[in-house]
Amino acid sequence: MKRTLTYTIENEITVLDFLKRHGYSHSVITHLKRTPYSILGNGNWLYVNDRLMPGDTLTIHLIEEESSAKILPVPMDLDIVYEDEDILVLNKPADMPIHPSLNNYENTLANGVADYYQQKGEAYVFRCMNRLDRDTTGLTILAKHMLSAAILSQDVANRAVHRTYLAIVEGTLTGSGTIDAPIGRESNSLITRCIDYEHGERAVTHYRSLACHNDLTLVSLRLETGRTHQIRVHMKHLGYPLIGDYLYHPDMTKISRQALHSSLLEFTHPITKKAMKLSAPLPTDMQKLFPDF
């Protein structure tokens, strides 16, 4: 992967300070320092302590020549919602983990993306910015190089990446509201989470009822925090658990997986700074339960 970025300098500043102000992390700057001719001022190789003057042209060459070593490329049909030089946004299907793990070596999103870039002849390191559970469908952002990953990671930490989900819950839920209840790990379990007012981390979910049908409710949910299983635990706590949730409401009579879909992502593009708003329609298995939505 090779990415060239060009800046016109407006004020006197060191290269190091300029890069820091533009979101270059310590690891990215270290990579640039170790790569010959990766930092050029008016065409000349610069060091990070060199000074830039108004009107100077700063050119950065980001070069990554090695792909993720432990991810096997596997051909898959990827639903690409958006792609440019810096990011890739995919609509992930159900029954697909994000990363390889025990017993999931060849069936993950990472495997499909590795093959996608192998076919293009491009080196690629898999960097997922908003991970989804295996059976949660919808939008996920992948950074295509270390700089976009660094900036997006900081944006996620600062809650500047806004995520909206659609879920189908058991029961008739009307109106809207906010669930502010801390989530912690359930005792004696490595997987399940629960509401834990003593030891849990703060978790905030905003919900709005969209439609009710056959004692089910289609709900829009906006995350303010990003705790593990946050929506699933919060909706169960509210008394309206997600249908098909094998951990928290194992009723598979209406759907074979938790009815949860990442439908909307709003964020600032890490490089162009353009406002991004991307959406993915309700998947078929959820659409069948709300055919008029």
Results as ranks from 00 to 15, higher is better:
Thr253His: 10
Ala69Tyr: 14
Thr6Glu: 14
Gly121Trp: 04
Arg131Val: 11
Leu190Cys: 04
His199Gly: 01
Thr225Trp: 06
Leu147Ala: 08
Ala149Gln: 13
Gln258Asp: 12
Leu152His: 01
His26Trp: 11
Lys273Val: 03
Asp77Thr: 11
Lys277His: 10
Val89Leu: 06
Arg131Asn: 08
Leu52Val: 11
Asp56Lys: 02
Arg222Asn: 11
Thr217Tyr: 03
Ala143Gln: 10
His229Lys: 02
Thr6Ser: 12
Gln258Thr: 10
Lys92Tyr: 04
Ile243Tyr: 07
Val161Asp: 09
Asn103Pro: 02
His145Arg: 04
Thr6Leu: 08
Asn188Ala: 02
Gln118Ser: 02
Tyr37Val: 10
Val161Tyr: 08
Asp86Arg: 04
Thr136Tyr: 02
Tyr82Phe: 15
Glu186Val: 00
Leu282Val: 15
Ser27Thr: 15
Ile191His: 03
Pro250Ser: 07
His99Leu: 08
Ala143Lys: 12
Asp133Ile: 12
Pro73Tyr: 09
Glu12Cys: 02
Leu72Arg: 14
Ile151Glu: 08
Val125Thr: 14
His99Glu: 07
Asn111Lys: 06
Thr284Glu: 14
Met286Asp: 12
His145Val: 06
Leu139Val: 07
Tyr37Met: 14
Asp77Met: 04
Tyr105Ala: 10
Ser262Asn: 09
Ser279Arg: 03
Val125Gln: 14
Gly43Asp: 12
Glu64Ile: 13
Ile195Lys: 02
His199Ser: 06
Arg163Met: 05
Arg185Ser: 07
Glu65Lys: 14
Asn11Lys: 15
Asn91Ser: 06
Ile271Cys: 01
Thr14Gly: 05
Glu198Ile: 09
Tyr117Ala: 10
Asn91Met: 01
Ser153Val: 04
Gly23Gln: 08
Gly226Cys: 09
Asp84Arg: 05
Lys33Cys: 11
Leu90Tyr: 03
Ala259Arg: 00
Lys92Asn: 05
Phe18Met: 06
Arg222Met: 12
Ile151Gln: 06
Pro250Asp: 05
Lys236Ala: 13
Ser101Arg: 12
Leu278Tyr: 08
Glu10Tyr: 04
Gly184Ile: 06
Ile141Pro: 06
Lys277Arg: 15
Lys274Met: 13
Asn49Gly: 10
Asp95Val: 01
Asn111Thr: 06
Thr14Glu: 06
Ser279Gly: 07
Trp45Gly: 02
Met146Ser: 13
Glu186Met: 07
Tyr240Pro: 00
Leu278Gly: 09
Thr268Asp: 03
Tyr124His: 13
Asp84Pro: 01
Tyr197Leu: 12
Thr253Phe: 00
Gly43Val: 13
Glu170Ile: 03
Glu266Tyr: 01
Val89Met: 01
Leu152Trp: 05
Asn11Val: 13
Phe126His: 09
Gln258His: 15
Tyr207Arg: 01
Ala211Glu: 15
Leu139Pro: 01
Gly175Met: 15
His206Ala: 10
Phe293Asn: 12
Thr6Phe: 02
Met1Val: 09
Pro97Val: 11
Val113Arg: 06
Leu147Thr: 11
Glu85Tyr: 12
His269Arg: 14
Glu266Asp: 10
His22Thr: 00
Ala69His: 14
Leu40Asn: 03
Val161Lys: 09
Glu64Met: 12
Leu109Phe: 05
Gly55Ile: 11
Asn214Phe: 01
Asn130Lys: 00
His31Val: 02
Thr228Pro: 00
Arg51Ser: 13
Thr30Met: 00
Thr30Arg: 01
Ala157Pro: 04
